[in-house]
Design a protein around this nucleic acid. Sequence first.
DNA 1: ATAGTAACTTAGATTCACCTAACAATAAAG
DNA 2: CTTTATTGTTAGGTGAATCTAAGTTACTAT
Lengths: 233, 233
Amino acid sequence: MFIFVSNNITIMASQTEENYLKSLFTLANDKEGVNASELSNLLKVSLPTVNSMAKNLQKQGLVNYEKYRPLSLTEKGKKEAALVLRKHRLTEMYLVEKMGFGWEVVHEIAEQVEHVDSSIFFEKMDELLGFPTIDPHGSPIPDKNGSVSGETFEKLSSCKAGEQVQLTALLHSSTEFLKYLTARDLILGTELKIHSVETYDNSMIVSYANHESETLSHVVCDQILVRKNNIVS
Amino acid sequence: MFIFVSNNITIMASQTEENYLKSLFTLANDKEGVNASELSNLLKVSLPTVNSMAKNLQKQGLVNYEKYRPLSLTEKGKKEAALVLRKHRLTEMYLVEKMGFGWEVVHEIAEQVEHVDSSIFFEKMDELLGFPTIDPHGSPIPDKNGSVSGETFEKLSSCKAGEQVQLTALLHSSTEFLKYLTARDLILGTELKIHSVETYDNSMIVSYANHESETLSHVVCDQILVRKNNIVS
DNA sequence: ATAGTAACTTAGATTCACCTAACAATAAAG
DNA sequence: CTTTATTGTTAGGTGAATCTAAGTTACTAT
């Protein structure tokens, strides 16, 4: 009879390692692999540094590394990275929603707070925020198992003329805002065609359902998240 | 974290350095100097490690170090230490008051959050808390210049039978100790009447709220700070 | 197809925070 | 006042995360 002593004692990744994992995760966005030089640029460290960290993370079973080939995360690495991202995004949400910070300033703070090692701390944030699944940039917040809800949404304000999109989420849901939208028959799922974007004030002219032409201000477009459709011509 | 200026270059103290400064500050409580071995015990590092860090901090003008003599903080060191303590205590306060954590669990989280380098982050906490001067354990919160509020409290152990006092702060806030107190409904602000002091072991018999008679050992009384009430007869 | 450039790797060094082993000074106890 | 115990110091070494310099592989463009 064999006795297996599991030697996969999980030790917490260092802050540095967490940053590498997070960067690999975000840079990999849909692509297959990530070049060492991309990481080198993003993290502002030299290529040899990336190289040795790649080997280190490979030893821990977190990244796939082969000489001269782009890097990629293993399944284990992806999960770990998603959990860091979760901490980052929950923190950003918390800072904005509960502490009243502007979106411009929260990233820098979240970059530091994300490395706190305390599950109750982040679960409390999650709870106080009402278990959000996307952050205000439309990026998904991974759940506590590191699973990411597949889709990422974009702000309507970042779309271009000619695109067809579907209204999928709101960044803010004040009564005022909801009234504004319902008054225009804009509900979740509405298919929008973007006719033009006014360069002066960034307002958009869109059409949908029974609405031939509606003008939406930038303030409004910036609070609406959409899914881009495959444009069928 | 804190900032010191040298040769016009602003350098941040490392998390490790912050921890040494904070420990020196708290261990020095009234005493003149701190033994290297005390630090060694508290920080769970070897004596040689403390020794070399002492030299390092001396070079930065933060501690007074002479061979074989106890360590002490310079004025500059005291200020930086107080600022770390400020971040720690504001964090604890925030976690308890705004996030609903119990005061037994916040220390561990605050130990990590205190090293975040962002003045707006802690100033926002301060603001949201209404600029408190005392943290959840009753210890004073230094202001943003590193000055500690003047009010000093007395040890319960130094009080006499017949006195009425209010529990205002704790000298030590280990999880064990906090559990001990909460198990007896002893919280900050509790009004205590000292019935008698046992001359043999210096234990005290006190009454408060729904507790007719509780015996507190000297060890416990020596860790509790109180404000003496003006006894109106 | 090959020369030139960009990307990657290796080698070797540095700094920080830590360690153990061995030695020195001070404090405590007889 | 000497011996012993505690406490502090020095020397030397380790691993993590970084660097520069120099060499190697892969991509790209003529």
